[in-house]
Design a protein around this nucleic acid. Structure first.
Length: 493
RNA sequence: GGUCCUGUGGCCGAGUGGCUAGGCAGAGCUCUGCAAAAGCUCGUACAGCGGUUCGAAUCCGCUCGGGACCUCCA
């Protein structure tokens, strides 16, 4: 390993060396989507960021267990309605049909962006027993109370022993002065208290029977429960979007500490927001577009569509903790930049160091290339700085292109350096950043080009060429069909 | 209102005490049948004003601008 990995920990607001609890194992939990509608582009950014983090940890040799939940119950609207229930009523479907539909969509979208699936993708409804158990523990420890069939987390009690708000830097007194009126608040002893279990109103369709009531779990609980179950009471990394810091992650810490005595994650990583014209991209502002729309260009804010890898590249050109502004100009620039990088990848993959090459080493070139390779490691080690890494990769692209044009000879850099460059470039581009070649070349159109050559050869009675083309196409599984009506092709049977 | 982040060249975007980030756009050169690709070179960038320092885009203070969170959101 070259250098040491350092990460910015939201918990301490410091850049710290990353030391896993049980190396070579690393446990990472990321808050996943609530599957009640199409996945938001902001989610995509967050999950692409953590995909790179996951990939880089693996690249460093860690055995990572990546857990990302699917929220399929308990996430409420201001009105007190469950998001999934509401959608189910709207579309006249079972809640679980909604869940399945948007889970499928979500996975498909993430796959389009070449994000690896997590190792465990647990659902809230699949862990009700565990949630009930954690509520019982919190009750037993005195950090929760029952009220009208609902169970709430007791912030005042918790504050006697610990400090609620340490992650987001909030003070309970300040929070108390500015809470809004919410449904069911009258059952709480303190407006800051949050629901662990809510008694279901008669019209509420997602409900489970417990000793307290027919009800459903609170939104924050699932993450505490599932991270503890799969990663332990203490684990390495917890990630999510900045906007989950408060209250969601704060509540998670409180639940973990209140039930197990340990606060869960040791390193908290938060991704920043996507913006459009400087404003946060959000559903309520109407300035957001779906991943699908960004790819097809079917949205009034978009001049054209952009390929999935262009979008992934665009996102990785900024640091995950910075906001990233979307504009057609920036996306166009990314499109060209990505193509340049992809061409470099295609080239280097096709190159092998030639046998029997003779010539003197150019030490300056050797040193430069080795330094750039080192820099890729240093950049990723510095809190997963993908933007800087891409900068270094472009420096390697220049070297690769110079080999193609002959301005740089294989012998200038020697076999060892060439192989290191090739290995480093491919590993960082494909394995770490998850950027892959995507061909936008249409096979059909290429066939058209070849068939028109075929027709031309036939018309000029160049039968040697006709036979040659026909044979070559056959070798590729394409049969040329010479018909009275014209020339077409078919798959070889 | 409270808490916090941020302001980098035409655009995007890293960096955060002295060392060329990078991409896109632009200019020049090399190569070239044409066109392109590619390589090389260039533009005297760090919101403003003070301060600390041998030295600041980078630290501190103030001013101005932008934004986020404060129980919908990744």
């Amino acid at each position: 390993m070259i250098g040491k990995l350092r990460v910015v920990n939201s918990l301490t607001k410091q850049k710290e060396e990353f030391v896993p609890l049980n190396a070579p194992h690393v446990g990472m939990y990321v808050c996943g989507p609530t599957v009640y509608s199409d996945v938001h582009l902001g989610n995509v950014r967050t999950f692409i960021s953590f995909d790179v983090i996951y990939r880089y940890l693996q690249f460093l040799g860690y055995k990572v267990r990546y857990v990302r939940n699917i929220t399929d119950v308990g996430h409420l609207l201001d009105s007190g309605e469950d998001k999934i229930s509401k959608k189910a009523k709207l579309e006249n479907l079972e809640p679980m049909e909604i869940v399945q539909k948007y889970t499928n969509d979500f996975r498909q979208v993430m796959d389009t962006f070449n994000a690896l699936p997590p190792d465990i993708e647990p659902t809230a409804t699949g862990h009700l027993m565990e949630q009930i158990k954690m509520i019982q523990e919190l009750l037993a420890n005195g950090y929760a109370y029952e009220s009208n069939g609902s169970i709430y987390f007791d912030i005042s009690k918790y504050n006697e022993d610990r400090q609620y708000g340490k992650l987001s830097g909030r003070k309970t007194e300040d929070l108390l002065n500015q809470t809004r009126e919410l449904d069911g608040q009258s059952d709480k002893r303190n407006p800051l208290d949050f629901a662990l279990w809510k008694k279901a109103a008669p019209e509420h369709i997602m409900r489970w029977n417990t000793q307290w009531s027919d009800g459903f779990p609170g939104w924050h609980l699932e993450c505490s429960v599932m991270s503890t179950k799969y990663l332990g009471e203490e684990f390495d990394i917890h990630g999510g979007g900045m906007d989950l810091k408060f209250p969601h992650h704060e509540c998670e810490i409180a639940q973990n500490a209140g039930s197990t005595g340990k606060e869960g994650a040791r390193y908290w990583l938060h991704t920043n927001m996507l913006t459009v014209n400087g404003q946060k991209m959000s559903k309520s502002l109407g300035n957001s577009f779906l991943p699908e729309q960004l790819i097809t260009g079917n949205h009034e804010l978009l001049e054209r569509g952009y390929s999935p890898m262009t979008i992934r590249f665009f996102m990785l050109q900024s640091h995950y903790a910075s906001t990233l502004d979307f504009s057609n100009e920036a996306l166009n620039a990314a499109q060209k930049g990505y193509t340049k990088l992809a061409n470099g990848l295609r080239l280097i993959k096709s190159y092998e160091y030639p046998q029997n090459a003779e010539g003197d080493l150019n030490q300056k070139q050797v040193d430069q290339i080795n330094k750039i390779c080192d820099n890729c490691h240093y950049a990723m080690n510095d809190d997963f700085n993908t933007a800087l890494t891409i900068g270094h990769l472009f420096n390697l692209v220049k070297k690769i292109n110079s080999i193609q044009t002959g301005q740089l000879k294989f012998t200038d850099i020697g076999e060892e350096t060439f192989n290191r460059m090739k290995q480093t470039f491919i590993a960082f581009t494909e394995d770490v950043l998850g950027l892959k070649l995507e061909s936008e070349i249409s096979t059909d159109n290429l066939l058209e080009v070849i068939l028109s050559e075929y027709k031309a050869a036939k018309e000029s009675k160049d039968y040697d060429k006709v036979d040659e083309l026909r044979a070559k196409l056959k070798a590729e599984g394409v049969i040329v069909k010479d018909m009275k009506s014209g020339v077409d092709w078919a798959f070889e049977e």
